[in-house]
Simulated assay, not measured.
Amino acid sequence: MKNVKLVIMYDGTSYFGFAEQKNAKTVMGEIRRSLKKLLGEEVKVNGASRTDRGVHAIGQVVNFKCASRMGAGEFLNALNFYLPKDIRVLDSEEIDDSFHARFSAKNKEYCYSVFEGKEIPYFLRSFALHVKRKLDVPLMKLAAGKLTGEHDFSSFAQEIKGSPVRVIESIEIEEKPQFVGRLLELKFKGNGFLYKMVRALSGTLVDAGLKKIKPNDVAEILEARDRKRAGKTLPGHGLCLVKVNY
């Protein structure tokens, strides 16, 4: 048996999230069906992140074990033949038998995209939140600085299972001027994220940029451990899983 690791990219627009659900089209469901067509048998597939409905990825990681004689590197082209065009395998390799896409991960990187401008370009509509008002990026960066480190992130989680304590290693905000308006990329790196946490963090940073809250309010929001105190959960289409580090 070989343990195969795949790096996956997908446009989440048409899917009800990554994890399999009954009577719903999911990314994992498409991967498992395509593997069954390729291998002629069912295999258990482990995913690094259970991205929500509409969320995208350019660095999702999965692994599975199989007895196929096919070389691990051959899965890239072979699996892409069966997968829908909005799901692509970017890399495939054989890896140590103990590797698990989720449990072996050290940290993950996400990016939430916000387009600031009067009209959003059509090619960004499915991949970025549209904000018409001007955002104060220096204030957003000050607020982001209050969120880094180890904290109880209960105020930013829609649902909590287990400990709400997480470590955010860094939050970067990158500005990319466009022909009309500008694109802001809110980049998060951490050892783990609670359910819908990145989207709530992004909503809070947008509130700071719109001057609805002050950067110093973030400490009180964290301390409150109350979801109602933080910014709203932004739509899934602006979020992308960028990379899983091992």
Rank of each mutant, 00 (worst) to 15 (best):
A144N: 10
P177I: 15
I213A: 02
A224L: 11
F115R: 05
P138H: 12
G145A: 00
P164S: 03
E159G: 03
K85F: 14
V7S: 13
Q60Y: 10
R227K: 14
L194A: 00
T233F: 02
L186D: 06
K65C: 06
G209V: 05
S98M: 03
G203Q: 01
K228G: 03
P121Q: 04
L135W: 09
G59E: 09
Y110E: 03
G54D: 06
G117M: 08
H56T: 01
A24L: 14
L76N: 13
L222Q: 00
V55P: 09
Y122W: 14
R102L: 14
A24N: 13
Q21H: 02
D152I: 03
Y10K: 05
V114L: 04
S170F: 03
N3I: 03
F156E: 07
R50F: 09
N245A: 07
K132V: 15
E93K: 15
S154M: 09
G192H: 08
V131N: 02
K2F: 00
K134F: 06
F193H: 01
A67F: 01
C240L: 10
S98Y: 11
E116P: 07
E93G: 14
S163P: 08
K25T: 13
Y10S: 03
G54Q: 01
G117C: 10
Q60C: 13
P235S: 08
K25D: 12
N191T: 15
T204P: 04
T204A: 09
A230D: 02
V4L: 00
L6K: 07
K214C: 00
R102F: 09
K196Q: 08
E174G: 01
V114N: 07
T204S: 11
D152A: 02
N63A: 00
G71L: 08
V198I: 15
S202E: 07
Y82K: 07
M70S: 06
V242F: 13
R33S: 13
S34G: 08
I171H: 04
E159C: 06
Y122V: 15
S92Q: 11
K132T: 14
A78R: 09
V55A: 11
G40I: 05
N216P: 01
R33M: 14
L205E: 04
G12V: 06
K214E: 13
A101N: 02
D97S: 12
R229G: 00
V43A: 14
K106V: 07
R182A: 07
G17P: 10
F115N: 04
A230V: 00
N46E: 03
N23S: 12
T204E: 00
R102I: 10
Y110S: 04
S98H: 08
K65W: 00
E175L: 14
K146S: 05
V242I: 15
L183F: 10
G162A: 00
G47T: 07
E159R: 10
E42G: 02
N46Y: 12
R125D: 11
H56E: 00
V218P: 03
I213R: 01
V89T: 09
L205V: 11
L183V: 08
A72C: 15
K132W: 06
F64P: 00
E185P: 02
V244L: 15
L194Q: 03
E93I: 10
G231L: 04
F18C: 12
A200F: 04
Y246C: 11
E30H: 13
C240I: 13
E30D: 11
A57S: 14
A19M: 04
S202M: 06
M28Y: 09
R182H: 14
N245D: 15
A72Q: 08
